[in-house]
Design a protein around this nucleic acid. Structure first.
Lengths: 226, 226
DNA sequence: ATATCAAGATAGTGCAACTATCCTGAGCGC
DNA sequence: GCGCTCAGGATAGTTGCACTATCTTGATAT
């Protein structure tokens, strides 16, 4: 198909497609003439990947390119997919690995969860982040960490099962990244809900709160609009 | 103090301060003359808040303004702080509330967690997000949701205790937002670690995996520096 | 009285992600 | 065969955001 058709199929403007071509995010397509190139299904998938990573996760084109580069030749074996997933994680989460040494909490966590006690970028990232949080004065409670890990473990397995069934690398990446992102957002919102719930429980005694009349305290008619 | 001193104290360039003034993020300060204005401690705090929300969480100025607007007059009582925290959540997490009706899972979760069965933006957001995930084909398992909720519950309480002790509204917001953000990042990284761990366990049998989850790709010599 | 410095306004910068325009050259009709 | 039109490729412009630099005006100090 031609660029214009590719545009029609993918829903991305020809101008943007050209832009992606220029940026090296999309391969040039089989050039049948100096002025005519043929695009295939791989291009459609690639565009979908780019679009998905941008719109859903909000990745920049630079990050997307890194993922795409890592995806080259990863169709084949399971362990190559593994490597690819690691890269996706690394890019999506912005791993830096600035060489902090791992807090003991991490090893404890790994052992407690029955995870293989191996180095990985993700593990280093967890260690670093814990250190950073401690440094920022918002140290994470190890008990909370275990709760996180249990939740994480549950979704990790589910995610892997889903990603296992993907046909193309593009779908693999998209499923992994989008799934990760959506779960993350979900957790955040659950935390928000937990905080809201806890707040209500805490402040119900102190001040009147409007909605459901959990307490009959009507001493001060506060305006709670924001 | 003058603008220049405010700049010196806060470490933000006079130009940026002016920009914030124009944007309405910072109040104009007591104008003693048409050409001289007096800034106070509140301005310093406000600037710190803006800076923190931008640099740590990466919020846009528009979002920051929404938070700031919500913070006006929230110094006083506990339940106003509650409302403020809700706004902070709403902005940081980008709540939209487009009117999806809540999946039954949410009420079950709330009951199971012993949270007050009340409406809130956070609750609506959870409901919507679950619906969205289902729609996207990555439905969240209720069992997983409970795991999330347990983790969320644990940190919510801790977070609230921390935020309770804050002196100024600005510190309150910053603590809440930064804490939330850091926990978010932590969870993501733990998920990444879980996935990496699970992957290793899965693929260890199928293919050779090399220490770091990567191997030298023989087919194409692409540069894998990151 | 004027030099100077601060406050306010206006316009410019840099980056990211497009988007619009132009140019060239191929295929097709006449 | 010749030009018209349209696709592909390159170049430059646009938009949005967050500043940043400059310019103007007017008050305070000398």
């Amino acid at each position: 198909m031609r660029l214009s058709e590719l545009s029609a199929v993918s829903g991305i403007s020809p101008a943007s497609i050209k832009f992606y071509l220029r940026s090296g995010l999309l391969e040039p397509g089989q050039a049948v003439h100096p002025t005519r190139a043929e695009y295939g299904d791989a291009h459609v998938r690639r565009l979908r990947l780019i679009q998905g990573l941008r719109s859903v996760i909000g990745l920049g084109l630079e990050d997307i390119r890194r993922i795409i580069e890592a995806s080259d030749g990863a169709e084949t074996s399971g362990h190559k997919r593994l490597a690819l997933l690691a890269t996706v994680q690394s890019v999506v989460l912005g791993f830096s690995n600035s060489g902090t040494r791992e807090p003991p909490t991490v090893k404890e966590l790994v052992l407690q969860m029955g995870w293989p006690d191996e180095d990985s970028e993700a593990r280093a990232a967890v260690g670093e982040h814990l250190a950073a949080m401690t440094a920022a004065g918002v140290a994470a409670d190890p008990a909370v960490l275990v709760l996180y890990a249990r939740a994480a473990d549950a979704i990790a397995d589910a995610q892997l099962t889903v990603t296992d069934g993907q046909r193309s690398v593009e779908e693999l990446i998209l499923t992994a990244a989008v799934g990760m992102h959506l779960h993350n957002q979900l957790i955040l919102k659950v935390i928000a809900l937990a905080q809201a719930s806890r707040s209500i429980q805490r402040y119900a005694q102190q001040g009147p709160h409007t909605q459901k009349g959990r307490d009959g305290d009507a001493s001060q008619p506060f305006d709670e609009s924001d």
